[in-house]
Every structure is written in C-alpha cells, then in structure tokens.
Nucleic acid binder design. Sequence first.
DNA 1: GTCTATAAGAAGATAGAC
DNA 2: GTCTATCTTCTTATAGAC
Lengths: 185, 185
Amino acid sequence: MSARERVIGAALDLFAENGVSGTSLQMIADRLGVTKAAVYHQFPTKEEIVLTAIAPAMDRLVALAESTAGQRGRPARVRHAIAGVVDLVVDYRRLSAVLSFDPVVIQLVRPHPAMRAVESLLDMIAGPDPDPATRIGVTMVSGGLITAGTDPHLAKMDDEALRSLLTASALRLLGVRPARADQKQ
Amino acid sequence: MSARERVIGAALDLFAENGVSGTSLQMIADRLGVTKAAVYHQFPTKEEIVLTAIAPAMDRLVALAESTAGQRGRPARVRHAIAGVVDLVVDYRRLSAVLSFDPVVIQLVRPHPAMRAVESLLDMIAGPDPDPATRIGVTMVSGGLITAGTDPHLAKMDDEALRSLLTASALRLLGVRPARADQKQ
DNA sequence: GTCTATAAGAAGATAGAC
DNA sequence: GTCTATCTTCTTATAGAC
C-alpha cells in the first residue's frame, strides 16, 4: 500500500470517529506513526485529503446517475437507483452521515461535478412533476439511507442483510414494488 | 432579551451555518458585536454553550417519552411519538441534522439523561420484540425526519405543510394508519 | 456586562536537510 | 518518503480594570 493510500485510509477511519473538522493532520500523522510533514509531502492541503478520500464515492454516484438514466420506466429507474445508493451507503456505513451533514464537507463538495449527479438522481427517483408528498418521500428515503449506518442497533448486522432490508424499506416508502428475484440487477 | 439568551441565539444560528466544531467563540462574539471575554462572562466553556443551546430540545424529548409511555396501544403510541418528533424537527429544521450527526455533539450529549428518553422513544415506536425489518423502518424514519430540514427543496415549505407531510410519510413507513382528524391530539 | 490584554496551546502550512 | 524546526494564525480560556 502506497503512502498516499495509507494517509487516506487513516483519514477515513478518523473521519468516522471524530468527523472531518474534528480530525487534524496531527491525528492522521500520529495514527500512521509519522510526522505532519510526511503527510504534507503526499497532499498539499487538508482539503485535498478530504476530496481524495471521498472521490471513490463521488465517482460511484456519477456512474449511478448515468446508468439510472439508461433504465426505461420509472419503477425500473427507482429500483436501479435505490439499489445503487443502498450499495454505496452500506459500503460507507460509518462515514455517510458524518460526511453528508458536516457543513465543512458540504461547502467543500458543493462545486464538485458529482453534486449534479446527486441532483439528477434525486430527480429521477422523484419522477416528473413530483407532488409535495413524493418530494418528502424522496427526502425521507435519502436521509434515512444516509443515516442508516449510524444506528448502533444495526452495527452488528451483516452487509447483505442490511442491504436487502434497506432496499425493501426504501422501495416501500417510495411506493415502488420490489424487483422479482429473476429480474434483479 | 438577556445577554445569555442573545449568546444562545447567536450560537444556534452559527451552529446551523457552520456546525458546532466550525463555530468559535470569536464568531459568536463577533455576531453579537462584543468581545470573547463578554461571552465567557456568561458561560464558563464552549461546552456549556452547546449544552444550554440544545437543552430545550432535550427537555422536549424527555417530556415526549413520558407522554408517549402514557398512551394505550401501539398505534396510539406511534402516532403520539411521531407527532412529537415531527414537531421537534420542524421547529429545529436547520439544526437537527447538524446537531444529531456531529461527533463532537454526540460525545458531549452521550451521558445526558435525555438520551435514555430517546432510546425508550425508539423502543416504543419499534414495539415489543421488533423484527429486523421493523428496526430498519424505525431507523429510516428517525434518520429521514432528522435530515428532512436540510433538503433545500423543503426550505420554502411552511411549517404546517411540512409537519403534515412528514407525519404521513413516517406513519406510512411504519405501517401505522394516520389518526382521524377528530381523534388527533 | 463589557472591556483590554495576554497566556498557552493546537491548528494548517512551509523550508530545507537527509 | 520522512525528518526537524519554524511560522502564522486561530483556538479556548484567564486576569483584572471599568
């Protein structure tokens, strides 16, 4: 594992524990057993560390928005989008809430092209001309999914079980019938 | 308005904008047009400011847990609890997500007696011996409600409309029929 | 209640040696 | 890639005058 990857790994662990604002370069360096200067050799600023750390998730959101747009019919689109978002939040369980609702991260990520993808994803889930009840449903689902990883009750649940339960719950709230097993994916 | 109240008011505004970790005593003082020392005259530490700022919400959670326990039957309990939580998150629209998912706040609030109330509230909503699907539903609902205030699409919605839509959405996800108008409250 | 002044430390960041 | 050393700025917090 390269030094860059080690920095990102330590940063992600610490972000999950202390939040982005609560994580200093000193803490990252300490966890790796090196000095701050060694970290600064890999990344010019703390902002770059944050952006690099979340880049894989951002890329997945962009890809998901594109593949969702390729689905025909709203039910298929919603199922596809929810499956992708659920995969993402399960993989980022401990991080998604901490990253999604930290004002520092929000400001940092606002100009990122992936945010357009998130917008279009939400729009596709809501469907054309959504009424307020539908909009609220989409908001509830996205908030619920993002925060699902923070619940201590769910910490011991394995990924596969969490995935299927979150998917079922989200589709139910959105009023979309789950995919039959043979047409899944 | 007393000086203490002015400090708390400024702090809440700034917490909503910048998060708790992103808000310094200097920022609070600047917003009030006074010096840091004037703020320190009102509160011994920053922690005290945070705890005092969120105390009213904590008190409401404790009261809600008590009154919910007094309801007979799970549907009535769920309706009562959801109504109370929705009232709270609507009143704290811009703050609830920032406060609920900031690791600094979580650590600070963990020993607070109100957290017992939150636990019991979630348990009452889940009902006795909840299966995993129900537990996930409760998690989704609480996460969805807490984060509802952060959605820019909902910012322009008035409190009454937001309240009724969130209530309907939450009860639907929990599988509880909404209260009839004549038995509401 | 508010002020000036200041301490003591941690933050992000840089220079330059090895 | 990592180090020591340093700079600047910001943080929480205190002392004491008005």
